[in-house]
Structures are given as structure tokens and as C-alpha cells.
């Protein structure tokens, strides 16, 4: 009986097709966006250029990645700020 109950409750999460579907979903996000390392690199450079107008950032430590959380894929950027530019408001 215990076996029966665990089967019912575990079915959805452990069924191998769900693993397949989840892996597919993730890999297709990369495929469809054709996110090559090169594209991420250009994106990074663009981000640095724009953000540098407003603040001084640590370019070496900047990280940009596609990450998979719960039910969606997100573009996560971690941009350490060294200091703010004083004359931002004047720009």
C-alpha cells in the first residue's frame, strides 16, 4: 500500500518524460536565441558601455548568464559597482 501511495505522489516528478521535457525546454531556449558564447560576450560589452555612462563598474567581475529557475529562463547579470559617477544628473 505504501508503494501505491508513493507511486501516486512521485509519479509526476520522477517520470523520466518530465526530465526529458525539462531538459529540452532549456536546451531550446539556448538554441532558439542562438546564444553562442560569442553573443553573450558582445552583450556583455554592450552592457558595460551603457552602464559605464552612469557608474563605474568592475568589468572583470561582471557576469552575464542565462539561468534556469523554476518555470522560466532568465538573463541574470551580476554587475559589481565600484562607484557612482558624480555628474550623472548633468548628462
Amino acid at each position: 500500500m505504501l508503494d501505491f501511495i508513493t507511486r501516486i505522489f512521485n509519479r509526476e516528478s520522477t517520470a523520466s518524460k518530465n526530465i526529458a521535457k525539462e531538459r529540452l525546454r532549456l536546451v531550446l531556449v539556448h538554441d532558439r536565441a542562438s546564444v553562442s558564447p560569442q553573443l553573450l560576450q558582445t552583450l556583455k560589452e554592450d552592457l558595460i558601455r551603457v552602464i559605464s555612462n552612469y557608474m563605474v563598474i568592475d568589468e572583470e567581475a561582471l557576469e552575464v548568464n542565462l539561468e534556469n529557475s523554476e518555470n522560466q529562463v532568465a538573463l541574470i547579470a551580476n554587475i559589481p559597482i565600484k562607484s557612482m559617477k558624480r555628474n550623472v544628473n548633468a548628462v
Partner: peptide
Amino acid sequence: GDMMSIDDIIDI
């Protein structure tokens, strides 16, 4: 549950 269904594939 060990093979993707028609709905799964169409969904994707």
C-alpha cells in the same frame, strides 16, 4: 510517464 506524449511535444 516514460516517454514524452504528443501534447508534450506539440507544446514544445
